[in-house]
Design a protein around this nucleic acid. Structure first.
Lengths: 189, 189
DNA sequence: CGGATTTCGCTACCACAGTTGCGTAAATTG
DNA sequence: CAATTTACGCAACTGTGGTAGCGAAATCCG
């Protein structure tokens, strides 16, 4: 199944992605210049465009490449699990430059392929949160009975809302408050 | 207080915004070419850039120009008021192209001045929702006792989260579900 | 009536995303 | 071996967002 012609230089992909990552880390999507990426990677621009047909697709590759699945093993305490998950998402969002996330959201809205990649990036965490919420609901910990998907939106959505719209800070304390609002006050035992 | 120099041509703003609106309506953000907008408006590009320092700000002006403040008078039924408000925000968001909102968020994250404008744009609605939530809380309608600000985030944040991150649709039914999740199921009377 | 000041249109320019064409290097197939 | 096929680098090109410089209006102030 090996190609008939000249094989692709394996170093190209690595160097380009590394250069692109360095570029996007300081400046976001718009500041990422394909010209500079090609130059810094020591690769002709045409070669770059042969592999990633657009800047958007290059960023897609970056994102999917960046996805490191944070291992998470649920315990028998849904409240603790939920607090841990939401806090992790909040600190992760807070540690990333807001402009980068906003640019990514804008690119996702503009380019369907970027949107898919972004959604796939969060789908894993989203599923993890959904699973814990469902478990908490079965255990009778949740105040109200609506679908877990809605509760997840009400746990994670406010983080993005604060970050992108109101500009308020994302403290771990805020994350705990969100969980408390959904699960109710911690019961004394 | 009138300026000392040559006064600005009042027709410029109107013609540019009209041309930009026509352009963005069929093609979205990327298809909006400042060159074509200037040409169709019969305005030099430099003149356009003197008033709107970037394409993003031009789009911001489009949106702020487009917003019609929905008059809202609170009734004595906080649940109905809340449902009405959240539904109105949802339908408004759903009727606006996603790219515009995402670009607005990105521009807000990049330039503080734009951020202020955007926040001021939503502050009114935010305050209205906060007031109704506080009233519902005083009336004992809210399931749990956290600050109204958090509840507002959990009512409005999911809308932005779905729009910008997960891409799920914003139906009026979803808005009602959000309210029900915060206030609890409607009591029979 | 002069300046002073600001806007406007114009040309030219820069860096960028993305494309095209061409010559050449490296592999497979006969 | 030769022919084919694919990858690569290079240069030139189009249209884009955005900027700089210039001369020419149009207004206000003394």
């Amino acid at each position: 199944m090996a190609g008939r012609g000249r094989p692709r230089d394996a170093g190209v992909e690595q160097r380009v992605l590394a250069a692109a990552m360095a570029e996007i880390r300081r400046g976001g999507y718009d500041a990422l210049s394909v010209n500079r990426v090609a130059e810094q990677a020591g690769v002709a621009k045409t070669t770059l465009y042969r592999r990633w047909p657009s800047k958007a697709e290059l960023v897609v590759a970056l994102i999917t490449h960046l996805r490191e699945d944070v291992p998470f093993e649920p315990s028998d305490d849904p409240r603790a699990d939920l607090t841990e998950l939401v806090t992790a998402i909040a600190t992760n969002l807070a540690s990333t430059p807001t402009t980068l996330i906003a640019d990514l959201a804008a690119a996702a809205a503009r380019e369907p392929r970027v949107g898919e990649a972004v959604r796939a990036l969060w789908a894993e965490r989203h599923r993890a949160v959904t699973a814990v919420v469902a478990k908490a609901q079965e255990a009778g910990l949740v105040l109200n009975h609506v679908s877990p998907a809605v509760l997840v939106d009400q746990l994670v959505g406010p983080l993005y809302y604060r970050l992108l719209v109101t500009g308020e800070p994302l403290s771990p304390d805020y994350a705990r408050t969100l969980v408390r609002s959904v699960l109710g006050p911690e019961e004394s035992r």
